[in-house]
């Protein structure tokens, strides 16, 4: 990277200081307007929980942050780098942003350890031994070091999701995105994954988490963002959001998920 670019980057970073900035982001699928003027700033080390009914655009928004989906209007700046068609910017951002999916998406043909060491070895060019040591330390942190040499198919859903978290952490990301990490899990496995996420939140990671787990939101979120029909309807600290919702849409949503539980 050239000197001027480096200077540019630091200048931007100082200027924004935010981990993630979404500035009037718009996205359409054909004629369907899925993100409407979404603006959101996530500060360094902030923990944001995004909730909303299905089809509200929350997953689409989080997937725009590491460009698994492209936005059509507005700006997205992650860690001081703007997301554009420039592939170098994209590489930089994907290296700094870890993601955990609803359906785990572990690589079934690789062992747990290989799942975790793959990106550090190939993307970060880390020596194998070092990558394995790193992977084992994260597997210990998510409490499944003994599964390292098994294949994903031999693990339970909760274990697989914890491996997925460890795999993302092995890239030492500055930001972690969670896209409904507990929605595909059997009820008895949700807690082990949430515990891992709480532990991660307490370590000071910047997190954006799409979830319906209100207990989790209450416990770790600095801010809850409520989305409906592609736009951010309301946002604020969890206690305020849950105890005195301002908009009818949030009231309706809260009453629906409370009935569901």
């Amino acid at each position: 990277m050239s000197q001027t670019m480096l200077a540019d980057r630091t200048a931007q970073a100082v200027e924004t200081e935010a981990a993630i900035t979404l500035d009037h982001v718009n996205k359409w699928y054909g004629s369907m307007h899925v993100l409407r003027d979404v603006s959101l700033t996530v500060a360094q080390k902030e923990r944001v929980v995004v909730c909303g009914p299905s089809g509200s655009g929350k997953s689409t928004m989080i997937r725009c942050i590491n460009r698994l989906e492209t936005h059509q209007e507005g700006r997205i700046i992650v860690d001081g780098t703007e997301l554009t068609d420039d592939t170098r910017a994209l590489d930089t951002i994907r290296r700094e942003v870890g993601m955990v999916f609803q359906s785990f998406n572990l690589f079934p043909h690789l062992t747990i350890l290989q799942n975790c060491t793959l990106a550090p070895i190939w993307v970060r060019k880390m020596p194998r031994a070092e990558a394995e040591e790193l992977a084992m330390s994260y597997l210990r942190r998510v409490k499944i070091p003994e599964q390292a040499n098994k294949f994903p198919g031999q693990l339970s859903g909760g274990q697989q999701q914890r491996v997925a978290i460890a795999r993302a952490l092995c890239m030492k990301p500055k930001i972690m995105l969670f896209d409904e990490p507990t929605s595909a899990l059997d009820p008895e496995m949700i807690k082990e994954v949430l515990d891992t996420m709480i532990e991660l939140a307490e370590s000071g990671m910047t997190m954006v988490c799409v979830t319906h787990e209100m207990g989790f939101a209450r416990k770790v979120a600095d801010r809850v963002v409520f989305m409906d029909r592609g736009e951010i309807v309301e946002s604020g600290p969890p206690t305020r959001m849950f105890e005195s919702p301002q908009t009818d849409r949030l009231k309706l949503f809260l009453s629906q998920i409370l009935r569901g539980h």
Binding site: L68, F101, N105, V123
Partner: peptide, 15 residues
């Protein structure tokens, strides 16, 4: 192959 495999590889920053 499920789409998630492509996405997981992309999200990890693999070329």
């Amino acid at each position: 192959l499920p789409k998630g495999q492509y996405e997981a590889a992309d999200a990890l920053g693999l070329s």
